[in-house]
Amino acid sequence: MTSILALAASEFRIALRNRWVAIAIVMMTLFAVVLTVAGTAATGTLGVDRLTVTVASLISLGVYLLPLLALLLSFDAVAGECERGTLALMLTYPVGRAEILAGKFIAHLGILALAATIGFGTAAAIALIADPEASVGLPALFRLFWTAPVLGAAFLGIGYALSAVARRPGAAAGLAIAVWLVVVVLYDIALLAAIVTDGGGTFTVDFFPWLLAANPADAFRLFNLAASEATALASGVDGAAASMPPAATLVAILAWPLLALAFAHLVFRRVTP
């Protein structure tokens, strides 16, 4: 445990010096505040409190931004150490590969949690100040607070695995961007296309909700929307939130980090420095 914490502290210090901590916080806060201010201009007619609307916007923001930040933090983890030549030395120390990965994970997860809490917290504070009724939306906000790092954790694990597969930072960065595009952007578009083609058939009814839950980003969205009054505000793919049992999406968002990290460890074990 001493080793893991020492590695985590060192990794956090490196991220701090490389401005990654600042970049993550600024990006989260900037987007969250802009979305809140822009997104709540027309809520009066919907009859929903301002925080609920804000949370609905933040969920969408989180779906895109958290995986991106997590992949940016993690793609260099193994490949960068390989390329610099620091991995060989580290592996001759009495510290296991799982511990090395755990140290990096704790540091990176901390950065994501910090950025999400500050970013979402600032946006929520604006909503709470502007609307006295906004406290109705607090439970949904808390759910967002704790699920944000969990979503980040899934993509950190994916990022470490990609990093170990690629072994070179350039290749790892390319893979990370590709995975982000496919999982976060193209996956939903493909599902939508399938629904349109299917026209309300067996695919839409029996498979579609489960395919959504199988994607960590979609599971995060569904689980959070289910807690929010804002489901009514959701459109398109998000409309499926109503048809999925929250337990299924909860299992999905919790299972993803575990599976991704286990896979990352498996790949990392095969890396010869």
Partner: peptide
């Protein structure tokens, strides 16, 4: 172990 051309993280 002391590797050939030993490297460390430049930010530390």
């Amino acid at each position: 172990y002391l590797p050939e051309n030993v490297a460390f993280h430049p930010a530390l």
